[in-house]
Design a protein around this nucleic acid. Structure first.
Lengths: 237, 237
DNA sequence: CTCACGCCTCGCCTATGATCGAAATATGTC
DNA sequence: GACATATTTCGATCATAGGCGAGGCGTGAG
């Protein structure tokens, strides 16, 4: 029965600004030290430690001890996938003003970014749109599934579709994007596609900014394999 | 701060036991009145009103005014879809016991519960069904009335029908059940029947959970007086 | 070795917000 | 008309838990 109010446990955990900031900073899947997270959360290390302990004990975060550092990261992709939709749920909720300053940074991330391990942002949405338009990908019950020619197409790009199918996570998740408000390809297939694009050097991952940048090679190759993709990317806000 | 931590807003909203209980009760998409939700959440109507206002203003719930009732429902399917995954996210979350106890599974309430002072839930519906089938009770203009042999039958169970008739409230209200979507017996007669079953120790009232539990005595007695009742109760979900 | 650093635990303080009683406002019933 | 019911608003209370300072432990650098 889906009337279990246990979502309140997670809600209480992520409903506190300090913890929410930490989780948001970890949403791309990278690990960060307790000190870094204390900084982004705007609290002292003692307070951060307390929060991180709670999040870890609850199973939302995982810790790795390295020397005198402790690296915290999301416990898994499911955490990011479950949290991201929440950002769209309360459009009318009031927000503190300092969000103005943060918005600039959000804008930078919009064009192309990694959502944990797959492509999101405008590039992620445009890729999904292109695949959908050509029937290589189809919506099905909240997820995606490959169209008849989808498998061959993706394998032509170097994506190991079979390996993605074997993974335990969602195969082709329909992941709603927080910046574009439209779906992009997540799950095992989304991760495999992103990995392929990186491996082919069409895309470069910027560790510092968490953005993805198209290489010159990628620009030409992607526009060849995904007609109209670049046009979709350069549409103004 | 890299990614939008706005999921904290939703998290804070659903992270409170009272609000979580309300949301959980609404997860099936049906609308319920503020009073029913206060009942489910285990708080007073004043408190419930405050919570419902917050949830509505945030866009998680929608209201519909009908007479002196206000029917609250989820603002859309997206709300349930976004909340549902959270329940599976932190299965190991350990939380103060007092707090966890405040979270109640609505499913438990469905089988047999008290709607104020009369029986509702599956048991209430099954009892009404049984009475209707045997013509001891009949539908009439939105309410019930006793059939020719109904009075004697209920008095045989220890119900003071005459006293119930003298009360100012509705005598035999046809009360639509929110969980079963089918009518059960409310009003003065419904309250008198419930009281009789409690007095006879066939039923035990759990104040904490607002449930009604059949005693072993009640199981045998009720199945004797209401043939087929237990079968109706054990139908799976 | 000592010192600096990263992180955690302990204890106290404080503020947010959940809660309820009383009362007001509609609405429905007799 | 009086009365009951459903819901909200206001006001006050009070417990929870977020926050930080102090101190301790382990790690790494000199």
């Amino acid at each position: 029965m889906s009337v279990d109010p246990s979502f309140a446990l997670v809600g209480a955990l992520i409903g506190v600004p300090a913890r929410a900031n930490m989780m948001a900073a970890l949403m791309d899947g990278r690990a960060q030290t307790a000190s870094e997270l204390a900084f982004v959360a705007g609290v002292t290390p003692q307070t951060a430690s307390s929060h991180l302990a709670k999040l870890t004990e609850a199973g939302l975060l995982a810790v790795e001890k390295q020397g005198r550092h402790r690296y915290y990261r999301l416990a898994g992709p499911a955490v990011a996938e479950a949290l991201e939709p929440l950002s769209h749920l309360a459009p009318n909720a009031r927000v503190p003003e300092r969000r103005r300053a943060q918005l600039r940074r959000v804008g930078e991330l919009r064009s192309a970014r990694f959502c944990y391990d797959h492509l999101a942002g405008r590039l992620g949405v445009a890729l999904a749109d292109s695949l959908l338009k050509r029937r290589l990908l189809r919506r099905e019950a909240g997820d995606f599934r490959l169209g008849p020619k989808g498998r061959a197409f993706l394998e032509g790009l170097g994506v190991d579709v079979a390996a993605a199918e074997r993974e335990r996570r969602h195969f082709a998740r329909c992941c709603l994007d927080w910046s574009e408000r439209r779906p992009h390809l997540g799950g095992a297939l989304g991760a495999a596609l992103a990995e392929s694009l990186l491996r082919a050097k069409w895309l470069r991952r910027d560790r510092a900014s968490r953005k993805a940048a198209l290489t010159t090679l990628g620009e030409s190759e992607l526009s060849r394999h995904f007609p109209g993709l670049l046009q979709a990317l350069t549409v103004e806000d």
